[in-house]
């Protein structure tokens, strides 16, 4: 509205440009209007309401249409989460955060390393049946995560699962006894000085199975954009294949793989399906992630107020992680140039 005033006493060229800007603004908001309306109602309003809920004792009693509003409790929910002061057992905020960070880190490192190695392997000149292998290796990428998680839960089953059957068969060849490992509910620590239960390793193996192929696809793309001349020059200088890999391939892959690794880190950090369906967070909630707790607080405990405060924590944790990883990516971009 203000622009009409400005137009009357500005030179012709400026008038035209300011009219164009005003028109652009009007068009822009017209194009944005449906999205803003819908997101305002079903995205932003609920998120603001979530912040309000996080300061109340919202529970089952407040759920009905005519039920009384919840009581305001200040920062009580936030403090109770930090102190693990819950009306049920097994909740450990700091333990879950530490496990989640380690879970994402360990997965991404293994995914990227395996993905790059397989990409290099499939790029070796003269290797037979490449196309067949490429076609097979992409299969885990295209299967929905829900299916992978529920199927693998049964694969790890102690009594009937094919993993134990396979291990029993292999043990049988060497005259060993049938294997009966309780992968998902055993409290034993496979490596005594690492406080991670067996189910973590089962989750890790499953996630490696589903994670390295996509990394290999991305690494292959990056690998094929490395100029061949670099390898020729390295070879003239007498570099061995291992030296070529370390001094040409790895530095050239870094700018492409690092952003993808960051994307993978955030995805794995929030990977609901594997924890919820495979280990069920067990044994005794030791393999829960932040997102599975966010769901359990609503779905099982029906503590909507506490769940809201928990979600606010999750938001800030992810904000911090995103800022840190973005800084990391920027540093590497400079390094690449």
């Amino acid at each position: 509205m203000a622009t009409t005033n400005v137009q009357s006493n500005t030179p012709a060229t400026m008038r035209r440009s300011s009219r164009k800007t005003a028109e652009d603004t009007r068009t822009a908001y017209l194009y944005l209007l449906p999205a803003l309306l819908v997101m305002g109602i079903i995205t932003f309003y609920p998120l603001l309401y979530q912040i309000y809920m996080s300061f109340t004792d919202f529970g089952l009693k407040n759920l009905r249409v005519n039920s009384p509003p919840p009581n305001f409790v200040g920062f009580d929910n936030y403090l109770r989460i930090l102190k693990n002061d819950m009306p049920f057992t097994g909740f450990d905020f700091w333990g879950t955060l530490a496990f989640d960070l380690w879970w994402a880190t360990s997965n991404v490192v293994l995914h990227v390393v395996l993905g790059v190695l397989v990409a290099v392997l499939l790029n070796v000149e003269g290797l037979w049946f490449k196309r067949i292998y490429r076609a097979i290796y992409v299969l885990p990428v295209v299967i929905p995560a829900l299916i992978i998680a529920t199927v693998w839960k049964n694969m790890w089953d102690a009594d009937y699962g094919p993993i134990n059957s396979l291990l029993s068969t292999i043990a049988g060849w060497f005259g060993g006894a049938p294997v009966h490992i309780r992968w998902l509910d055993s409290f034993d620590l496979p490596i005594s000085w690492i406080p991670l239960p067996l189910s973590y390793y089962a989750m890790l193996v499953t996630n490696i199975w589903l994670g390295w192929p996509l990394n290999a696809v991305v690494a292959t793309g990056a690998l094929q954009s490395i100029p061949k001349e670099l390898y020729e020059a390295a070879e003239i200088d007498g570099a061995t294949r291992v030296q070529q890999f370390l001094n040409v391939t790895v530095p050239m892959l870094r700018p492409a793989m690092l952003p993808f690794a960051i994307f993978g880190f955030i995805t794995t950090f929030n990977l609901f399906h594997l924890s919820y369906f495979l280990s069920g967070g067990g044994p005794d909630h030791r393999t829960e992630l932040l997102v599975t707790w966010a769901y359990r607080l609503v779905n099982e405990q029906k503590l909507y107020g506490i769940a809201s405060a928990f979600a606010v924590y999750v938001f800030f944790i992810l904000l911090i992680l995103t800022l840190i990883t973005n800084r990391l990516a920027k540093a590497t971009a400079n390094y690449a140039e």
Partner: peptide
Amino acid sequence: PAVAGIAP
């Protein structure tokens, strides 16, 4: 993550 918006 979408799970974290489920309560409201």
